[in-house]
Design a binder for these strands. Structure first.
Lengths: 340, 340
DNA sequence: CGCATGCGCTCAATCGTTTGACTTCATTCT
DNA sequence: AGAATGAAGTCAAACGATTGAGCGCATGCG
């Protein structure tokens, strides 16, 4: 096994100094056109591999960016990631991804590791119950960080989130307009800003329309999976049969709820209306298509990425808080309130 | 903004040499118990952050491992990842993840970047049409690499895959046992080992049972999403109405197909049987539960990770090829062939 | 002709950590 | 007593790329 090809190897082969090679490869003007071409060709031929560890040790910077997502099991995060990566690829940053699976420990060790690796910034959709220790690490090392999808109470950090309360408000308004009076809620049992805001939006909207919020009509489930939605809907059908419409924290919950309704012989969109939240790419393909609150994922991802680049360039700027308005997408799961 | 805290900072504060601090932090026996405790406490107090770039530059090794997945849109890859990460976390390796979104260029630049970063190994579920250039990069730098879920024709690499042909064979056997004679196929239009093997398994099984394979009954779609499955099933219903059972390349396709059938008024599991492949975690929650070929994701992920660690430890060992047998999981979407 | 200018390149220090060689001092063995 | 051993550190040379300073050499100008 031969030794690693370094600048030195190339320099010796080309009969020039190490610095000349370094500069040639980076198109530094101090090196002549002819030499540059020659050196580059030689480097390629020898199979030279740039050593970023050495480079960034010397320079004190790196051009990779870390993303830590609370849980990839919800496909909505994939959509955020796509938008973020699209934006960051343009600036030739490498994106390193971590799926924290809603475990604080995973998130923690990833962040620490990224600091050790010299990552230049972090995009964070924090896990439920993110420990203060983690935040301290970020602050102490002033690690450029932008929160997205979920924010913290601490106002000192940048964040880009959806206007969750507004979104649920839009959903409830539409259900009321369709004549529904007994509207249930599924989701929002997590201790996250998103869960809190969406439920508050629900409660506020009910109040605005003078509707009651009874205990049997609220299912504060702690997760967002399909199966959880199914079970929650089952409880609602049994304990609150008067319900004709359901607003859900997420599309996954809504799809689960719809499946329970169908099983119970209630036609979704006619006997009972269901609205999700997030507007997953695949929600349009369900039968009937899921009505949902469309979170501006493209914009949130893009803006979070840009904000991070700004923050890296200018660490002392005051924190930026961005709240992006969602919109309502109506498909087949919502319809007029059935007459008794 | 203060300068970065380094070993030197800590050493000066503790009144010892830089090497002493380095050794103390790594529990080197040459440092006494008392000094070690003292130095560690001081390092923590000062907020010392280990600089891995410097360390691995010096050592010529790093302890992070890269995973590149062809496309996270299929949730089955999340399940593989979970298994892999579980295994690697034990050995205190950092896992760096890339979603190649089935684009060769993304995969390519990730791999190159990982070489530059000094990643110690790669787990790769290669994108469709992985270019030879990429493989050359891997070989030339003898970058320890294990392929999983999809393999290459090149026998020189390690791989861990499911026995795809066997899996589809099991599915067809079951459908035949249930009395079906007109069995259609959806999927497998991609240029991947998985697509080829699953379709071959289908064709071979039909032949074994003396059944015909007509063109109208084969939908070689190039993707695996829900919507593609829906469209494919639609074409089958129109052009091959005699079909009573469908074997699919993936669960996503199968779920799409099932949705089309329901829409067309065909009761899935009674009028028509559908079998998926992969056995996604969520497939059990659909209504009716999806029958599927269960790929041993836990085992494949675990073994791929272990294989990689072996490969890293021993780069010259002969390549290992592992094929893991899947099993058949029957739920509600399969039933006896309806009598005419 | 002599001196400044600038081009094109080399030199050497540097980033932070690791590690084999070396030092110092105390203790043990012969 | 003198040599040998060992414990607990220190020293300095790496790892590979970058970069400010420096150095010939040719050209231009007065």
């Amino acid at each position: 096994m031969q030794k690693r090809i370094t600048l030195k190897t190339v320099a010796e082969a080309a009969g020039v100094s190490v610095s000349a090679v370094s500069m040639a490869l980076r198109d530094h003007p101090r090196i002549s056109e002819t030499k540059r071409v020659e050196i580059k060709a030689l480097a390629r031929e020898l199979g030279y591999i740039y050593n970023r560890q050495a480079a960034s040790l010397r320079q004190g910077t790196s051009d990779n960016i870390s993303i830590c997502v609370n849980d990839l099991h919800n496909p909505v995060f994939l959509e955020f990631l796509t938008a973020i990566e699209r934006e960051l690829r343009q600036s030739d940053k490498l994106v390193l991804l971590c799926n924290a699976r809603e475990e604080c420990e995973i998130q923690d060790s990833f962040i620490r590791r990224m600091l050790e690796q010299g990552s230049s910034g972090l995009l964070l959709s924090p896990v439920e119950g993110t420990c203060p220790e983690t935040l301290r690490t970020i602050v102490q090392n002033n690690f450029p960080t932008v929160f997205f999808t979920r924010r913290l109470e601490d106002e000192g950090f940048d964040h880009v989130v959806s206007d969750d309360a507004l979104g649920v408000g839009l959903a409830v308004d539409e259900l009321v307009r369709l004549g529904h009076r007994n509207i249930a809620w599924i989701g929002g049992g997590q201790h996250t800003s998103t869960a809190a805001a969406r439920f508050e939006g629900f409660a506020a909207a009910l109040q605005k329309h003078g509707l009651a919020l009874t205990e049997a009509m609220v299912e504060k489930v702690p997760e967002t999976g399909l199966e959880v939605g199914r079970a929650a809907m089952d409880r609602i059908l049994r304990h609150a049969p008067e319900v004709t419409a359901v607003a859900c924290f997420s599309d996954l919950l809504a799809l689960g709820a719809a499946s329970t309704c169908r099983e119970a012989g209630r036609s979704v969109g006619q006997d009972i209306s269901i609205i999700g939240h997030d507007d997953l790419e695949q929600s349009v393909y369900f039968d009937p298509g899921l009505s949902s609150v469309r979170v501006a994922k493209e914009q949130i991802g893009r803006d979070a990425a840009r904000l991070l680049l700004n923050r890296i360039a200018c660490p002392e700027a005051p924190p930026v808080h961005e709240t992006v308005a969602p919109s309502l997408i109506l498909r087949g799961t919502t319809g007029p309130c059935p007459v008794r």
